[in-house]
């Protein structure tokens, strides 16, 4: 899958900062192809997460467009875009994002069950993912019993359960120790090797040693 962003920008209205207009992302062009692990680095508030959300179809840009395999995703209806996100996009949001009323395995399988009933095939793959991410023993635990690192690995397994063509990761190692950080970046690199286009935004320098391509974001500007 090829992701293409053209003249993508986003403005916010923020009176608290003393000005009405705040440009989080200045006009940006970006192309990401399958099999490539792209890391976008930058300081907090540089616009990385905003860019990622726009690329992932979660935040409508002020201007410009985002296309997956030439399909303008913001030209789609909400139902169509939701289906596309469910089938082709794996998104690992910042922070803890577990659904607390569901067990670990149910959290992981949730994207799969949004549009279908039969989960036999996905259940096998979920178990395989949990093995790879070292959370197999926690299968039936509730999220409240998991540590931060385990929750993050669960979120990663959930993001890739549909074998998406594009994976977005927003600060995937934000609150993790070194060992968990290595596990997460290693997994993302393997996913890229398996053919997915992987984009991670992070301020973690370790990420660069796993990435095929490292971009920097400074004050809303993406620099190659």
């Amino acid at each position: 899958m090829i992701l293409k962003a053209e003249k993508l920008s986003r403005e916010f209205i923020r009176e608290s900062r003393g000005t009405n207009r705040f440009i989080a992302v200045k006009e940006t062009d970006l192309t990401v192809e399958g099999g490539i692990f792209t890391v976008i680095m930058g300081r907090s508030g540089s616009g990385k997460s905003t860019l990622l959300n726009m690329l992932g179809g979660l935040l409508e840009p002020t201007s410009g467009k985002v296309s997956y395999d030439s399909v303008d995703i913001y030209g789609l209806s909400d139902g169509e875009l939701s289906r596309l996100r469910n089938g082709s996009v794996g998104f690992i949001p910042q922070g803890q994002t577990a659904l607390h009323s569901l067990s670990v395995i149910e959290n992981i399988l949730m994207p799969y069950t949004l549009f279908r009933e039969d989960i036999t095939e996905a259940e096998k793959y979920a178990e395989e993912l949990m093995e790879r991410l070292d959370i197999a023993e926690l299968k039936n635990e509730m999220p409240s019993a998991l540590s931060g690192g385990e929750l993050r690995r669960m979120a990663i397994a959930r993001a890739v359960i549909r074998k998406p063509g594009i994976i977005f990761a927003d600060e995937p190692t934000g609150d993790l120790d070194d060992e968990n950080t290595e596990t997460v970046f290693g997994f993302l690199r393997d996913s890229a090797r398996a053919g997915a286009a992987v984009i991670a935004v992070t301020h973690e320098n370790t990420a660069s040693k796993y990435a095929d391509r490292v971009l920097r974001m400074t004050a809303g500007e993406l620099q190659g």
Binding site: G56, L58, D78, G79, S82, R83, L84, R85, N86, G87, V89, F91, P93, G95, T97, L99, H100, M110, P111, L114, F115, R158
Partner: peptide, 16 residues
């Protein structure tokens, strides 16, 4: 809100 945002990330439509 965050729980609903997470569902949206997974592909849940506004209607869902």
């Amino acid at each position: 809100k965050k729980e609903f945002a997470v569902l949206r990330v997974m592909g849940a439509s506004r209607r869902k």
